[in-house]
Design a protein around this nucleic acid. Structure first.
Lengths: 305, 305
DNA sequence: AAAATACTATACATAATCTATACAAAATTG
DNA sequence: CAATTTTGTATAGATTATGTATAGTATTTT
């Protein structure tokens, strides 16, 4: 980590200017010490150098260079930062507090910046487990207790979904691993757990067809056949929905003998015996065990006709 | 994005003249920064160059050149070479064909490249209207008729959404303009039209809270109050969903007398009389008219209190 | 606890724009 | 040909963009 003076020397940009750029364009958002002094990362320095280079090379004004920078945001995820606003830190609780405020205020630009910051500081899966999921749960609770409206809840989950999809797509697939499919059965709208688990599978290199919440069971078997799905992951919170899922799995099992199932969610606390083998808790350690014991043996997905 | 000075240098047209042409003939309508400075795109520059060329080459007066320009707006503006063999070119049909292939093949890298190409050749809003929207509609149809799977459809719309979000975030906001909110009511999942309209509003410098498809109406009024929304945009395809929206708007209107509504989508072909004033077609020209007649008078968002 | 660094906020200065209006030469019209 | 319209430029006065400076306080280092 570098002090602002070091950065100024390294980039040859006056200290005042660096601060002005941060304040005016949020080019970088360095971490802060407990006392509020800026701590720059290598990435921050790269960004500043890049900006300066663009300005000199192409005769760009700072605003134009910034536009270029933000325009290529898809490539580097860890770029943009957030405003200094309320000197809160960058621990998960602080970020969570901040993100909750921004999401309920429907401020997507700020929320994205906060999430960017979190991703730049931590492992992405960690951010989902310890920042995004908790915030969404909190928002869900706030909604149920009438503190916020559906629309706020909706807005927040859309925004987080966006990030989920991004990772889901970007993470590399290892073709020799089997194909998984993830869904919540019809009636179940709560898919945070499913998202986390899918992300886990994707990180492991599994290709995952994410069908999301409220998926009708009808026609799923066709999809399984068509795409040669080997693993079916489902999540259910609402116990009454279990019965339908149970019979569907029963059918499925006879139709596709090799198929592996993983089940999760609150509904499985009191799990019917026929599904007990498939149920897993929300503990990532248990997921690892599942991966080793169930997925790896399936390796080398059958690719021949 | 280019400043007016850059454009003047690149096109060799005096700054004053560029502004005069804009004012008098709306040859180009550059974006504006938050402070009102003009931001020109590549396409804008091409247009200006084309105009100038026409005037010199054919001894045309500016008004005639403009007439030519608007006349051929439907065709391929890309005069940059007539390699229009078919199949591998960069006309909208060709790009669309290519993008469709890439999206259904789940090839995100290639698809992004194709989209980048389109953006580099054309005005960004045009790309959404004439490339991305048509391709997504086609994919939607293919899905409904069983030609492709949910996963493919999902993948494609996600990828396009990503681009939409990017523009939505990057386009400058003009603080003196009112705040808009955009949604499709619960049950409506088809939000391409809403996206296009939101993009239009964003280009005009309006700040837009995008709630997206399937938004529950409950609690929306609270948000309108909280964020001081002045414009509510909604899109509906499915006629049965209109009734609920109609009553909601009724309530809303009494609660927030100053609120402006804009409605769009297939469902309004047969529009209930109470909403007829608010309904707009999908024609961008009509949007422009709406903007001038409805939004501009709302200018100077109330910031006090 | 000094000395060295940094922080925030405010203030300037200069360049680049903005809008609105004015004006003159060229083209068009009656 | 005189009157009008079209078109390119110019100017005034206000605003925005951007780099830099300073004051007063706080933090970190030695």
């Amino acid at each position: 980590m570098y002090s602002i003076k070091k950065v100024s020397e390294l980039t040859d940009i006056p200290i005042v200017t660096i601060r002005a750029w941060e304040k005016r364009y949020q080019i970088v958002t360095p971490l802060r010490t407990g006392g509020g002094h800026r701590l720059y990362s290598e990435t921050d320095i790269e960004t500043l150098k890049w900006i300066k280079d663009q300005m000199e090379r192409n005769q760009l004004k700072i605003s134009e260079a910034v536009f270029q920078l933000k325009n290529k945001s898809g490539e580097a995820l860890a770029d943009t930062g957030s405003q200094s606003e309320s000197g809160s830190g960058s621990s998960y609780p602080d970020l969570g507090e901040r993100l909750y405020r921004e999401l309920t205020a429907l401020d997507s630009a700020q929320a994205h910046r906060t999430i960017d910051l979190a991703f730049s500081l931590n492992d992405f899966e960690d951010v989902f487990h310890r920042l995004l999921a908790p915030v969404l749960y909190r928002i869900g609770d706030a909604w149920e207790s009438g503190l916020i409206t559906v629309a706020q809840e909706h807005f927040a989950s859309q925004l987080v979904m966006e990030r989920f999809n991004q990772f889901h797509r970007i993470l590399p697939v290892q073709a020799h691993l089997p194909l998984a499919m993830a869904f919540c059965p019809e009636g179940e709208h709560h898919h945070m757990g499913l998202m986390l688990f899918s992300l886990f599978m994707r990180r492991k290199g599994l290709d995952v067809v994410y069908l999301g919440p409220n998926t009708p069971l009808a026609g799923l078997t066709r999809l399984i056949k068509m795409r040669r799905v080997s693993i079916v992951a489902a999540s259910v919170s609402d116990p009454p929905l279990l019965a339908a899922l149970e019979t569907w799995i029963e059918t499925c099992r006879t139709e596709h003998p090799g198929l592996a199932f993983v089940l999760g969610g609150q509904a499985f606390r009191d799990c019917p015996p026929s599904l007990a083998d498939y149920a897993r808790s929300g503990d990532p350690a248990e997921w690892e065990a599942w991966f080793r014991s169930t997925v790896l043996p399936l390796r080398y997905r059958d690719l021949g006709m």
